[in-house]
Design a protein around this nucleic acid. Structure first.
Lengths: 106, 106
DNA sequence: TACCACTAGATAGTAACACTGAGTACTGGA
DNA sequence: TCCAGTACTCAGTGTTACTATCTAGTGGTA
């Protein structure tokens, strides 16, 4: 399972960010709500650093009433493009897998 | 895309083997037929070594009319169990992703 | 004969990614 | 004072697919 997430988790986070800006801790919480209960915080933050460095998100520091300032991530144009590519790849894979699961004609 | 295959490719190969015994070269060809055009031969052989070492397949050497002897892989009980687990994990992931793609209620 | 294409498999080294585990920093309540 | 919750960071690890190269056997062809 953990291996299956590779590459996919990034797409999932991009999809979450497409719904609106969010900060790391919040994204982790949303992932848990979505059923991904056992994804480590460290994993999410590392992923966010990656997509920031690749320029897929805009970042803004926002002070928090509780705890250290939040790093709010907003999906930008490049990020939306990456998300589209992700959905395309995912669609291909899901389609192939669906064929394999029942009746592999062709 | 190549990252998204991690973990998934193993399941795909197990699913192919569930259709009947096959050897490496044949599996590579089948993958290409299935649309996975750019999967390197070396990748498939390495994967087959892994699933053999984990005891998911039975192996038999069969002489070939053309070229060196073939290593024919047959999915065994443990392999079928692993395949079931794979479909279960895949089902979960595909379900979550489908929710995310359109209308993320919950 | 010499060479090439096809079949068939093995292997060493690399990059990407998620995980573990620990740490820093700030707030408010018991 | 200590702990729980919020919020982020970082070093080190294991798995996996990729690239590139190599060995080996058969048959066809220049």
């Amino acid at each position: 399972m953990t291996e299956m997430l590779k590459g996919t988790l990034e797409g999932i986070v991009l999809a979450l960010l497409a719904l609106g800006p969010a900060y790391g801790y919040e994204i982790t919480a949303r992932l848990r709500d979505q059923g991904f209960a056992d994804i480590a915080e460290g994993t999410v933050y590392a992923l966010l650093v990656r997509i920031e460095q690749r320029g897929l998100v805009d970042v803004e520091k926002v002070p928090s009433e509780k705890g250290p300032p939040r790093k709010v991530f907003t999906l930008n144009a490049q990020g939306r493009e990456a998300l589209d590519e992700f959905w395309s790849s995912w669609g291909f894979l899901a389609d192939r897998l669906a064929h394999l699961k029942e009746g592999p004609r062709s």
